Every structure is written in structure tokens, then in C-alpha cells.
Simulated assay, not measured.
Amino acid sequence: MTTPVLSLSVRSLLLMLFVFSGSITVNAQSEQRPDPFDREVPLELRGVTQALQQNNFDQALELLADLRKDALKTRNRRLQAEIVTSMKEVNRLKREFIKVKNEYESLLKSQDPAAARVIGNFYCLEKCDWKAGLKLLLKSDSPALRKTAAFDLQLPATPESQVRLADAWWQVAEEEKGQVRKAYLLRGRYWYLQARPHIPAAERVDRDKKLALIPLEADQIVIWNQHNAHYSDRGTEACVVTLLLQGKPVWRKAIRIPWEKDSPAFQTLNPPGVRFDQIRVDVTQYRGNGGGLGEIEVFDNKINVARNCSVVASEYWEQNPKHHPTNLTNGDNSGATGFWLLNNQKTGWALVDLINYLPFQ
């Protein structure tokens, strides 16, 4: 390959390969997309993307192997490790695809509704390509699922319609088991969290109880740093990440976070799939004028379950709403916009509540 590896964003690589598929990168010039599964693909990875879209996993592996060779030449060990991780993910997808290959071939030949349901779920759950998966579920053998998929593809924008879509996903989840059921519950959860701040308290009561019944297990956490936009004068160097369940710590890890002047930087953690309902990040060491973070992402079943959740913090910079802790779950991990800042020369903490609604303060 002739593409210089040094121009390749590690995060973009993993996004494209569906490893961190629940997240979304939003820059200062673009509007935030309503669907957390949309993602931008860098030019360097178009070939790999196309191969995966066509379920040509061998070709994707060959292209990644070429990227790895270039990474070896540059002695970029971190990029080498990320490419190896990505190759493992492609191999996993290849194995999962083999399990549904008969249904895939049946779908190509006869548009079989049962096969459309199986392959649609494969795209949603395994490839995390919900847009393609939902289009296949439109052809499934379940009338309720067809109706819900069609509704979802409309990307409803009003709180009332988002709540109806959440209810619809929770309803079809009742007919499913295992990972399919969990994915449908989480999809409904996402749409409800979009609407929750904008609906009356009375409408939240029963639905919040449903949220509490959805078991959340953190299998991956991504903590994004920030660089205070064009000032590039502050950020976090070290922090402690704690998962809590009903107010009690169930997992904790102290980490250091990379910082870059003009681009996003992050640290990834892999907790042992523990149940949790809150995540707290304590900034223990800051860079420059003070600490802060760009985004907190927590993945369960490849879906960022922290997205749109309520956040409180020890403080935020000069009580400026622009730097409120709610920015930590708004989907903007650019580090240039939508970030949380602590006051000058201060450490502090932020707490994301995955269940309860905490009004903006």
C-alpha cells in the first residue's frame, strides 16, 4: 500500500471495524447525528470498508496486513497493536458470518423473510451496521419488527415519536432471547434517553423502571481527553475510573490518558464484563491550566450505553454551560467542542448515571 500509516487515526480504524461501533465523532462544523451508529470512514480505509460491506473478510484481512507492514516500518507500536486487534475482530466477524451463511445465500436467492431476519440481526448485532440491518429487517417474517425497523429508519426527531419508538423496540424485545433481546432493549433505551429530558416527569416513571431492569455490563470503556479547542492549554494526564452498582464500587482502575494538541486522544479499558449502573472518573492529575475530559463512553454489546445519560460533576469551569459535564455523554469526542472543563488548577470528578434522570444544574 502507498498510504502513509502515520496519517491513519487509530480510533478511526477501530470505528470502521465496528470495534467501537456505538460511538460517533462530531467535529465543530458538523451537526450531531441522531443515530449513534453512524460513523465517518477515513479515506485510507475505504478499501477495507468496502470489503467488509461485501462480507469479503479475507480481502479485509489482506488490506489490514498491508497496513500492519507499513506500521512496522514506522515502528509505531501502538498502531501495530491496534491493527492486530482489528484483524482479530475481522476474524471474529468471519466466524460469525459462517454460522449464518446458509441464510445469507437463501436471502440472495429468494428474499426469504426468515433469512432476512437472521441476516438483519447479524448486521445489527455483529457488524453494528444498524442502517443496513434495519433495511433487511423490513423484509423479516415479523410484522411488529418490520414496523419498528421502518420507524427507526425515519430517525424520529420529536420526543413524542422517540418515546414511541423506544416502546416499540422494548415490545419486540419481549419476543426474543439472548443477545438479540439485549440489543433490542438497548436500541429502545437509546431512543428513550434521547427523549427523556424533554418529556413530563409522569411519563418517565414507568419507563425509568424499565431502564433499571435492563442489565448493563461494561465490556469496554473509552475515556476521551480534550485540548480546550484552539487554546490547547489544558487536559487530563491521569485519572481513576470506577464502576458502581447501587452506589457501591465493583471495579476500579487508575490510568494515564494520552493528550494531543489539535486532535482527539483517548485511553481504552477492558473491565471484566461487570454489572454496573454508574461510572465515575476522578481527575487526579491535569495538564497545563487545568483538567477536563472530552467524552466518557461505556460499551455493552458493542453499544455505547453512556450516550445521552445524565452527568453530575464536582464543578465545571466558571459555571459556564458550554463546559457542563453533560458534554461527556453527548457523542462529541473531538476534544475541540463539547467537552467538560474543571476550574483552573483544580482536580475533580464526574459521575455518569446510566439509570436515573438528573436535571441540568
Rank of each mutant, 00 (worst) to 15 (best):
S9V: 01
S9T: 01
S12Q: 12
L13M: 10
S23N: 14
I24G: 01
T25W: 07
V26C: 00
R33A: 15
P36Q: 01
E44G: 11
V48A: 08
Q59S: 14
K69C: 03
L72V: 15
R78L: 15
Q80L: 12
N91D: 14
R92S: 11
R92C: 06
L93N: 01
R95H: 05
E96Y: 12
Y104G: 02
S106G: 15
K109R: 13
S110E: 15
P113A: 05
V118T: 14
N121M: 14
A132S: 12
G133N: 09
L134R: 06
K135A: 02
K135E: 11
L136F: 04
L137P: 07
L138A: 05
S140F: 06
D141I: 11
S142C: 03
A149T: 03
A150Q: 07
T158F: 05
R164L: 12
A166T: 08
W169G: 02
R189S: 08
Y192D: 07
R204C: 02
L216G: 02
R234W: 01
E237Y: 05
V241Q: 02
L244P: 09
A254Y: 03
F266R: 09
R275K: 09
I279F: 04
R280D: 02
V281F: 11
D282P: 14
V283Q: 08
Q285N: 12
R287A: 03
N289W: 07
G292P: 09
G294L: 03
K302M: 09
N308V: 00
C309Q: 06
S310W: 07
W317H: 09
E318R: 15
N320K: 14
P325G: 05
T329V: 12
N330V: 01
G331Q: 11
F339N: 08
Q345S: 15
K346H: 14
A350P: 13
L351I: 03
V352N: 07
D353N: 14
L354C: 13
N356R: 15
L358G: 06
